[in-house]
Design a protein around this nucleic acid. Sequence first.
RNA 1: GGGGAGGUACCGAAGCGGUCAAACGGGAUGGACUGUAAAUCCAUUGGCUCAGCCUUCAGAGGUUCGAAUCCUCUCCUCCCCA
Length: 413
Amino acid sequence: MVGRPQKETQGFSKLTMTLLQQLDRFCSAIISQAELAKLLAISEKEQRPLRVKFGIDPTFPHVHIGHAVPIRLLKLFQDHGHLPILLLGDGTARLGDPTGRNDQRPPLTAAEVEHNAETYLDQIGRILDLSEGKAEVRRNSEWFGKMDFFDALQLAARGTAARMLERDDFRKRVDANLPVHLHEMMYPMMQGWDSVELHADIEIGGNDQLFNLHQGRQLQEREGQRPQVLLTTHLLMGTDGRKMSKTYGNHVPLSASPTEMYGKVMSLSDDGMADWFRLLTTEPEDSVASWVKDDPRGAKGRLAFQVTAWLHDDAAAQEAADEFVRRFRKKEIPDDIPEVAVPVGEQALPWVVKELGLVQTTSEARRMIEGRGLKIDGEVIDDPRHKLTIAVGDKRKLVQAGKRRFAYLVAKE
RNA sequence: GGGGAGGUACCGAAGCGGUCAAACGGGAUGGACUGUAAAUCCAUUGGCUCAGCCUUCAGAGGUUCGAAUCCUCUCCUCCCCA
């Protein structure tokens, strides 16, 4: 846990004091306390808002709730009169932050990146006021797009291999005889350079970004700027307790519908609840601890409600909560089931299930049927050779695959 | 530039001429149990309107009745030396 600066807090305004008090809730590290106090003092004295940077690479169309944590911290600064700078890494997105996975992600095109960037703004705009004057939205292609190869080399010249290998992720790969590509080592340098271009006073990043954030300090110092203060936020774990990641499917997209969002939060493992409350709500920690202890299910419902209400609104959250109870506690069927038309005639069941969009392939449908996961009008059918006779004028049939996938089957003439 | 080790399904990793759609583990999905939590148990895990057929073991050729397994070339990664 990070302590608050003691001595330096004396002369601060009330506003700054409340900011400092709330920092603890989010931050896993503050580098450094003393510098932060100094910055805040300067800011107050000169009446100058601090430039608080947070960067995100638009590599996917969705922002997830894990990103919401640093964004909330940005919001906190915004609410205290400072200037959030949202940096869209449309240049770095073309590279991708090294992850250690040697996934051969095809390079994104500029158009894809821009599309993602737009969706990011849309989703982040729900949390942070991005309007003119309240925040700055920048893209790093602004400067990286202008650099030529020699400029890039000069940037590269400011780092060393030894230093890059201090980064855990690189170190581990080297030790495991896995490839580390040269361009990957440029990533932290680029992120650092962003801070120089933006004249960032503070940079916020996830706990796992500490190394990259440090590059900004190094580069700024060389350029004669005051090195940015680093604030790293605690990482929000995925619903299953592992690192939140799209590939694990344990994330909650900010774009999720209220029902989806509520449900996703309800699938959170109990161990994660305290953290989620801490990082996504304003509930006091001791209350949370007692809720979790006395009534875990109720506590989770409360969490799911708050998160949904925050990213949508109270009414939507209430509706999602009701829907959740109907669907999962009382096992009623949901009311937003799509109706899908299937050609008339005698059709093989697995094929129909695929056509309904409940599974990707007929083989998957077949397995689902054999595993007794398929119901038609509430009745389990476990014979993959089962044939359905579909005729115009039939009553629509409710087809359910697994616990949560439903479709109505109607005849297509 | 020289020498060595490798590239197997979502991931890790066996297999090294037929019995291989490919052991095992993880993950994932379905089922039981439940609080859409955890733990546990069972099943499934290339595709196809599936008792059969089709395409997979980096890529392209070749040897063979038969290849993930043998040969040739190509591409990629790692290690050591220069």
